[in-house]
C-alpha cells in the first residue's frame, strides 16, 4: 500500500490529490494567493485531515504547475504537461482512448496529443498573452460585474453571439466596455467571450492536430458555456471529468506512484552485496 500525493500549484488555484492503490482518497482546492509554499503546505494538511491519514504515511510527493519548484516538501517535480496527460488518460477509461487533451488553466492553455498508450507525442501552449486562458474570462467577468461561475449559464441564454478579439486580453477589455456602452446584451457579450477563448484554443489544436477522443479539463471546464463554444469551434464532443480542476494534481500523484514502482523494480534487480 503506497499513499502518494500530487500537488499542482497553479497561478490561480492550488490543488492537492492523495492517491492510494489507484483510488483517490482526497482532493482539495484553494486559491494560491501570494505565497505558493504556504498554500501547498496548508492544502496537504487539509487533504490528510479529510482522509484521516498522517504526513508520515505519504511515501512520495510530486509537485507540478507554475509554482512547482517552490514546493519544498516535494520529492520530485514534473511539468504540468506530463502530469496533465497522465491524469487525463487515467481518469478517462472509455472505449475510445483519449488522444487529445485541452487543459485551460489560469494563465496557460495547453493542447496535448497522446498516443494509444497514453504517451505524450506533441503539445502546444499559448504564448505570453492571457487571451484564451482562464485569466481572460476572469478579467472580463469583472468588467461585466458577473461572478465567474455564472458565465456559463448566462451565455447559454444568448440569442446573437457577438464577435470579440481573441488576440489580446487588453483589446478585448476595451471592446467589451464599448459593447456595454452600446447597450448590447450581457448574454451575447459573454457568449462572444467564450467564442473568443475557443478560437484561441482552436488555433493550438490546429497546431498539434485534432484526434478523438478529446478531453477537456482545468478550472474553466466547469463553465458549460465554454464547453459549448469549444464543441462548436472544434466540431467534436468533449469529455469533461467530474472535477476538471484536479486532473493535473491527480496526474502528479500518479507520477509519484509510478516513480515508487520504478524504484521498487530497480531495487528488485539489484545484485546482492558481496
Amino acid at each position: 500500500m503506497s499513499l502518494v500525493a500530487g500537488v499542482d500549484v497553479g497561478s490561480t488555484t492550488t490543488k492537492v490529490v492523495l492517491i492510494e492503490d489507484s483510488q483517490v482518497l482526497a482532493a482539495e482546492v484553494c486559491a494560491t494567493g501570494a505565497n505558493c509554499r504556504k498554500a501547498a503546505h496548508a492544502l496537504l494538511a487539509a487533504a490528510l485531515q479529510s482522509s484521516g491519514r498522517e504526513r508520515s504515511e505519504v511515501r512520495s510527493v510530486v509537485s507540478t504547475g507554475y509554482g512547482r519548484k517552490l514546493v519544498d516538501f516535494a520529492d520530485e517535480i514534473v511539468s504540468e504537461i506530463t502530469a496533465n496527460a497522465r491524469g487525463a488518460v487515467w481518469l478517462h477509461r472509455g472505449e475510445v482512448p483519449v488522444r487529445t487533451i485541452i487543459d485551460v488553466g489560469g494563465q496557460d492553455s495547453k493542447v496535448i496529443c497522446v498516443d494509444r498508450s497514453g504517451l505524450v507525442t506533441n503539445f502546444a501552449m499559448n504564448d505570453k498573452c492571457a487571451a484564451g486562458t482562464g485569466r481572460f474570462l476572469e478579467v472580463l467577468s469583472r468588467i461585466l460585474e458577473i461572478d465567474l461561475d455564472q458565465l456559463g449559464e448566462i451565455s447559454l441564454k444568448s440569442r446573437k453571439r457577438l464577435e470579440i478579439s481573441s488576440v489580446c486580453t487588453v483589446f478585448a477589455e476595451s471592446e467589451v466596455v464599448s459593447l456595454i456602452s452600446q447597450g448590447k446584451s450581457v448574454e451575447d457579450i459573454v457568449a462572444g467571450l467564450h467564442k473568443s477563448v475557443a478560437r484561441r484554443v482552436g488555433d493550438l489544436v490546429t497546431t498539434v492536430g485534432l484526434q478523438e477522443a478529446v478531453f477537456f479539463d482545468g478550472g474553466p471546464a466547469l463553465n458549460c458555456g465554454l464547453i459549448k463554444a469549444f464543441e462548436e469551434e472544434l466540431g467534436v464532443s468533449l469529455i469533461v471529468p467530474e472535477s476538471p480542476q484536479i486532473v493535473t494534481a491527480t496526474g502528479a500523484a500518479l507520477v509519484a506512484s509510478d516513480s515508487l514502482s520504478d524504484k521498487a523494480s530497480r531495487d528488485r534487480i539489484k545484485p546482492p552485496s558481496p
Binding site: 507554475y66 514534473v78 511539468s79 504540468e80 504537461i81 506530463t82 496557460d108 498508450s117 504517451l119 505524450v120 507525442t121 503539445f123 501552449m125 505570453k128
Partner: peptide
C-alpha cells in the same frame, strides 16, 4: 520560466519515449 516549462515537458516526453 514559461519557456522552461515547455522545454522541461519536451525533455520529459523524450525520456518517456526512450523508456517505452
Amino acid at each position: 520560466e514559461r519557456l522552461l516549462t515547455r522545454i522541461e515537458a519536451f525533455i520529459e516526453m523524450l525520456f518517456a519515449r526512450r523508456r517505452s
